[in-house]
């Protein structure tokens, strides 16, 4: 019983990340009709915004400490962060400690700019080209972005811890009357889950309850008619691209304490997120979110050693297996609309 609850919880945070990335993917696909393979790279760049902010806050000047020596036997140069120098040791340390949540504020404008630059600079030239061209160019873009990050930050994962207040885990099981230590769950993963729920809710509310959102939804349904009505749909689609980039970027920022980011993390999530979009149904926002959580939980279950003992290797293929079954029984995905990608 404990094991099952644990794997559901595990699936939720992974599912949150899948859902956030898939949401942006399907948003871009639904509005612009573009299959964006660079979307994983946006997630990765979001994570590196957090890494960069952490580094900027840690920018230091060196003070020579005569009492200690470094590895070559010279007097030790102690690094004092400017932030601690300016705001006092305690406030400065607190600011550095909260660098990941602070990165959200920084990431929103940066991700929006990156999104707009990507859409205006590259992707808009590919709207009328076949999907294969779009895939190739966005895939190429993803590799370029990934290599740029690697050139600056190296290939190894970079630890970016959560604020001290959220470090560690709490005994969820004891609240519900299980043995101590039976169900331990890290605080930050709960934060991530709540954060994902808020972001997903906000995107849905934005599309549902604003005029802008209504126009976009109309554009997703019938782009031509909306254009004939005299609405500049392209401009709104650029905005939607920026929003999708912000969603993926924030998903990346908040994911850094869960998984130390490296240049490759975007690709790792991208492939699975595409499966999520397909299983959820191309162009269906609700489907993307539901499939994200569903596949996250299923993947966690498949990684249980009892399950692996039963069906060896299942943990590596479960997602694709589910995708095949869903597509065989419901070719449009779980909540797919008719007519998407069928022309």
């Amino acid at each position: 019983m404990e094991a099952i609850i644990l794997q559901i919880l595990n699936g939720l945070d992974k599912g949150s990340a899948y859902a956030l990335i898939a949401l942006g993917l399907t948003l871009i696909f639904g509005t612009l009709g573009v299959v964006n393979f660079a979307h994983g790279a946006i997630f990765m760049i979001g994570a590196f915004v957090a890494v960069t902010l952490n580094r900027v806050l840690n920018l230091s000047f060196s003070v020579i400490d005569e009492t200690r020596t470094d590895f070559l036997g010279n007097p030790m140069q102690v690094q004092v962060p400017y932030v601690e120098h300016w705001f006092g040791t305690q406030t400065g340390a607190a600011i550095i400690d909260w660098s990941v949540p602070l990165a959200i504020i920084v990431a929103i404008p940066i991700m929006a700019l990156i999104g707009i630059a990507m859409e205006r600079g590259l992707i808009k030239h590919f709207y009328k080209r076949p999907h294969a061209d779009q895939i190739l160019v966005t895939f190429g873009l993803a590799i370029v972005l990934q290599e740029i990050i690697k050139a600056f930050y190296g290939a190894n994962p970079i630890p970016t811890p959560a604020p001290d207040a959220f470090v560690g885990s709490f005994d969820l099981g004891q609240i519900f009357g299980f043995e101590p230590f039976a169900i331990m769950y890290p605080y930050w993963r709960l934060v991530y889950f709540a954060f994902a729920a808020v972001v997903i809710g906000a995107v849905f509310a934005f599309l549902q309850f604003t005029t802008f959102g209504m126009v976009v939804r109309a554009g997703m349904a019938d782009r031509e008619t909306v254009g004939i009505l005299g609405i500049d749909i392209d401009k709104r689609f650029t905005t939607m691209f920026a929003i999708a980039a912000i969603v993926a970027g924030l998903a990346g920022v908040m994911y850094t304490p869960i998984l130390s980011p490296n240049y490759h993390m975007g690709m790792d999530f991208l492939v699975l997120s595409f499966v999520v979009v397909v299983v959820g149904g191309m162009g269906s926002l609700g489907g993307a979110v539901a499939a994200g959580f569903l596949l996250g939980v299923l993947q966690s279950f498949a990684s249980m050693s009892q399950v692996i003992d039963l069906i060896p290797g299942i943990n590596q293929v479960i997602i694709y297996l589910v995708a095949i079954i869903v597509l065989l029984t419901r070719p449009r995905g779980l909540m797919g609309r008719k007519g998407v990608m069928e022309d």
């Binding site: 644990l6 945070d13 993390m265 966690s300």
Partner: peptide, 20 residues
């Protein structure tokens, strides 16, 4: 003894069964 795929990224689903 549990084998984990190379580059699994998130190992949480392998970690959680350990305590029980």
């Amino acid at each position: 003894t549990v084998r984990t795929p190379l580059g699994a990224g998130d190992f949480s689903s392998y970690i959680t069964p350990v305590l029980g």
